[in-house]
Design a protein around this nucleic acid. Structure first.
Length: 432
RNA sequence: GGAGAGGUGGCCGAGUGGUUGAAGGCGCAGCACUGGAAAUGCUGUUUGGGGGUAACUUCAACGAGGGUUCGAAUCCCUCCCUCUCCGCCA
């Protein structure tokens, strides 16, 4: 959520940054004018209301004092005050619903606004204008990539990925991992967690059924309801990413400045409806309704968040490097930036069967956008008031896509797959 | 699912209609005492909105939302959550 004060004080500046995401036109974009108008009306009403309220409080105190001083409750001067109190109450009851309505509508508009891109986020219209920052691991690109099978075919041949059975059990876009496939998934999860724990992250295992307040806190609601699975009987949703439960661990808390930064890593299954992506990536492990992910989440002070962001990307990259998987780092342009992000790097791993880099991690700095929604603050000793923390998160990494990358990049001519060296202790074997 | 108890400030915990934003304690900060510290004493210590350059001022908040009243943490209604016991269960 954006700061209404910032919008009020610098509407042109905010509008300009929002236009970098989607230009404001007659047909689209983000128009601040209705919000500013609501805000103006609301403050006007608030002033009128609180003046009346002040007088009402005064009357209450006066009556109290008189009665304490020995006046009878039905003395004329008290009856006169009560009369005035009643008049004020009538006026207040006329003002209050209007103000509440204005506040609710302002909140609604505010919740629908995305975060402002950071000043140095490259400007662009869509994913074609993302900027490649670096590549890593060219020396590990597999030779004769034209002979490499897509991971789902290899998985099927090895008997470690079974789609048919999963579709029977659930529906399309689910897979069942069998034998070494399940073991590899588990090994990857353990490996990733161990590395991130060693890098200073505290492991958590949060609920993956989460309430709507939590989803609103991180920005998935109200705008992206159709992307998550909802449990109809309860106010519970299946977590689309561990970002939601882990960030919300600290919702409505005031942290001590010396507790920051807080680093968490979490393995969770993730559930996404993938609405609107019906034709895409219909095969394999790339786009599923259920997948595993190790997530990194940071809570930091505003001054450190940019540096913490770079470090977090480095923590995600370290996994790809340890697995010797070639990848590149993209910085998302303003037109492709996620709703809550002010700056975002995507890591894309090389998938030789399709000759493409595919997203395997997305590392975002949310600034205080989520903290404002989820009310996560910190207090510095000796300083008055509180500040919002900055939240950051990134995948470290998406496990299924990592498995896909391994199956393809580590394929051998005889149809077997080498196990990356760092995983061998976890799996107890060197070939699949 | 059945029965009961309860939700107050960073924490514990008083408070059943009238300066109660809230006693007391703990914690924390400052000052005093000390060679230094401990102990002790004194003082201070919630958050959010509005107005104001500021000093300051005003409103709101005792789980949430309604209601009664001139006035509600205190009374009434609805909802949510937590805890205990029983049942069920990995």
């Amino acid at each position: 959520m954006l700061d209404i004060k910032l919008i009020r004080e610098n509407p042109q500046g905010v509008q300009e940054l929002l236009n970098r995401r989607t230009p404001l036109t007659e047909t689209g974009g983000y128009d601040l004018q209705p919000l500013l108008e609501l805000d103006r009306q609301q403050r006007e009403l608030e002033q009128a209301r609180s003046q009346l309220q002040a007088r009402s409080n005064e009357i209450g105190a006066m009556i109290g004092q008189k009665i304490k001083g020995g006046s009878k409750p039905d003395a004329p001067e008290i009856l006169a005050l009560k009369e005035e109190g009643n008049e004020i109450k009538t006026k207040l009851s006329e003002l209050e619903p209007g103000e509440k309505e204005l506040i609710a509508r302002r909140e609604e508009l505010l919740l629908a606004l995305p975060n402002l891109p950071a000043g140095d986020t490259p400007i662009g219209r869509n994913e074609t204008e993302n900027v490649e920052r670096r590549r890593w691991g060219d020396e590990y690109l597999p030779p004769n990539s034209d002979k490499i099978l897509p991971h789902w075919e290899i998985g099927e041949k090895l008997g470690i990925i079974n789609v048919e059975k999963a579709v029977k059990v659930a529906q399309a876009r689910f897979v069942a991992l069998m034998g070494a496939g399940a073991a590899l998934e588990r090994a990857l999860i353990s490996f990733m967690l161990d590395r991130q724990i060693a890098a200073g992250y505290l492991e958590v295992m949060p609920p993956v059924l989460i309430n709507s307040t939590s989803l609103r806190g991180t920005g998935q609601l109200p705008k992206f309801a159709e992307e998550s699975f909802k449990c109809g009987e309860d106010d519970l949703w299946l977590a689309p990413t561990a970002e939601v439960p882990v960030t919300n661990l600290y919702r409505d808390e005031i942290l001590a400045a010396e507790d920051l930064p807080i680093y968490h890593c979490a393995y969770t299954p993730c559930f996404r409806r993938e609405a609107g992506s019906y034709g895409k990536d219909t095969r394999g492990l790339i786009r599923l309704h259920q997948f595993n992910k190790v997530e990194l989440v940071k809570f930091v002070t505003p001054e450190t968040s940019a540096a913490e962001h770079e470090a977090l990307v480095g923590n995600a990259e370290a996994i790809l490097q340890a697995l010797q998987l070639p990848y590149r780092v993209l910085e998302l342009c303003t037109g492709d930036l996620g709703f809550g992000a002010q700056k975002c790097y995507d890591l894309e791993v090389w998938l030789p069967s399709s000759g493409k880099y595919r997203e395997i991690s997305s590392c975002s700095n949310f600034g205080d956008f989520q903290a404002r929604r989820a009310n996560i603050r910190f207090k510095e000793k000796g300083k008055k008031g509180t500040q919002f923390v900055h939240t950051l998160n990134g995948s470290g990494l998406a496990v299924g896509r990592t498995m896909a990358a391994i199956l393809e990049n580590y394929q051998q001519p005889d149809g077997t797959v080498r196990v990356p060296e760092v995983l061998q202790p976890y799996l107890g074997r060197s070939v699949l």
